[in-house]
Write a protein that binds this DNA or RNA. Structure first.
Lengths: 339, 339
DNA sequence: CTGAAAGCGCTTACAG
DNA sequence: CTGAAAGCGCTTACAG
């Protein structure tokens, strides 16, 4: 207990071997006799030896570090993703550096500055775009980049097909006979043009058109993601349609839908009797609120992204796929019914 | 763009100065002429230089790394905490290593093994206990330990007073005239005896006794934390009391309460007309569900824990408090009413 | 203000 | 199987 940090040299001395041998024994490399290895291990244990990761990395060149960059760790989607990611990365003995970046300027700054460069072997960006220029810089610098929960430029990704998810939701409503359908879209002011949104919105438009309905702008409202904003959007839509509410509403995410449900309740409208509600995610509370939704397994996507990192680092046999589309599935509950 | 990783030596050569001077200029230490500094900076920029963090740490001895250890990153409470933490740590230019540890064995393993030792300056444990023995080991090894969201052995902490939170909730019910009050308690099988639970439970007992009511075991049920388990607990309690439901229920957390609300609804009981519900947290959805709750600001607690880390690292003037008790506040909404 | 040199704690060819 | 030595890329007294 004397020395808080015994060094390899201490261990070697204690075991009566050279530095080189001690190092080999500890890393169980080939070419160390069983007896010697045992001696070294015993010395290490007794001295409470722990290798200095910095020295190891400096000497070996390996980094074994990956950056996980998220814009909103406090939101359900991101927590799930990070959880899934961390599990496989930690299992492979990689350190996970968590970076929380806010707005676009923050991200640019982050991607341009030091941290992402020589510090990590890979950076996983969770649900935000990296432009081609930045991607190239990172690549030049030796860091692989992987996108989880949304793709943008040309690098490996894992995410759901938003158009598919939106179509499942919309198709469900249309099949139930709905034609006057509103939409509450999610929107991130910090990432204009993020494809998640447009995929879901296109599905809305296309599905309506497929049944001969022209989308009505008064039935559509977009608000910032986050659990509390759906209510305001719902109110806005209701206010914009004094001639009567839509018979159904397609919401871009469950968290937004929770707010919409509240708004409807407060306006005296019953779900699903007066208006049906369907959204995307299958947040744990969706079940509690009997919300029909298109489910995605975000933690699983995180795990896949983690595997991709292992592939790029060569830790894992198997080619790196250029992209993985995660499955989605309609979960019908009590918030939707036929007209 | 040629060399993906220019070294300090490259920069020095390019600028026509020595290694030492280049280093000083880059770290804007004293004793470098403006002209020299400019030359070095220009060279660094041109070469796209980024210091090797490993080498810097090895040479300087500083680690600037802190481990954040959480048992359930995917839960609301933990996401909030990590978000708050990350923000202040990142601002101080500390790297945040995220470790997700599951059950007790996992944690023991983690705390005993390498990662926590020479790799980090501090470890922040989020809402789980570290025993005195482990704490001493970490201290010996030079890593400070700080508890966020619950204290246990003798190290700095930040958390709410669970007894106070529980008392606010219970007092509210009692003041509304309730006497037949049920309780749904949270429980983590991986951390038996966690004080959060007992503080809230003691408040339940004491408040009841203070109005002359003897706690009735048939009105109490404990379930694992997590959004979906509250419903089962509520059903259990209802089943155990065929003579009629309690007039109110105190739930240990909002997520649990969401389930309880669903169960009550499914049993045809109206909230608050038939039974009042109060819980703890002020989860964003609590507002949407009109749930009366005792609010705590978890992200703020995370920020405080981050400051504590800065204090221990000497980055911040001001003594390290031995503990901070975060405020709680009763938020009355529509899920409670007088009997 | 600037430089030469030692050292941080490991790993890894290169010899034996 | 084992050791001596160079090197990873920085920082920091110590001289000048």
């Amino acid at each position: 207990m004397a020395s808080p940090t015994a060094s390899l040299a201490d261990v070697a001395r204690h075991a009566g071997v050279s530095l080189a041998t001690a190092s080999r024994a500890l890393n169980d490399a080939y070419g160390v006799s069983t007896a010697t290895r045992a001696k070294v291990l015993a010395a290490a244990t007794e001295l409470d030896y722990v290798a200095s990761p910095d020295a190891t990395r400096l000497a070996s060149g390996a980094t074994r570090r990956v950056a996980v960059v998220v814009p909103h760790i406090e939101r359900w989607f991101f927590g799930q993703m990070v959880g899934g990611l961390e599990r496989v990365l930690a299992a492979a003995d990689l350190d996970v550096l968590l970076y929380h970046v806010g707005d676009e300027a923050d991200r640019r700054d982050f991607l341009t500055r030091l941290p992402a460069r020589r510090k990590v072997d890979a950076v996983i960006v969770v649900a935000f775009p990296v432009d081609e220029d930045e991607r190239q810089r990172l690549e030049l610098i030796g860091a692989a980049i992987i996108a989880a929960g949304g793709q943008s430029a040309d690098y490996p990704y894992v995410c759901i097909d938003d158009y598919e998810a939106g179509s499942l939701a919309m198709r469900h409503l249309v099949d139930l006979g709905h034609r006057r359908i509103a939409m509450i879209g999610g929107l991130d002011p910090d990432q204009p043009g993020w494809p998640v949104v447009s995929g879901r919105s296109r599905a809305y438009d296309d599905t309506l058109k497929s049944v001969g309905v022209e989308p009505d702008p008064r039935l559509v409202h977009e608000v910032e993601w986050g659990p509390t904003n759906g209510a305001a959007a719902m109110h806005r839509i209701l206010d914009a349609n004094p001639d009567g509410p839509p018979t159904a509403v397609f919401v871009h995410s469950d968290e937004l839908a929770f707010g919409a449900l509240q708004a409807l309740r407060h306006r005296g409208l019953r779900v699903p009797d007066d208006v049906s509600v369907v959204s995307i995610d299958d947040h744990p509370l969706a079940e509690l609120l009997d919300l029909t939704t298109v489910a995605q397994d975000v933690a699983a996507q995180g795990a896949v992204a983690g595997q991709m990192v292992l592939s790029t680092l060569g830790d894992r046999p198997g080619a790196l796929p250029s992209g993985v589309t995660a499955p989605v599935e309609l979960r019908v509950r009590a918030s939707t019914r036929h007209t």
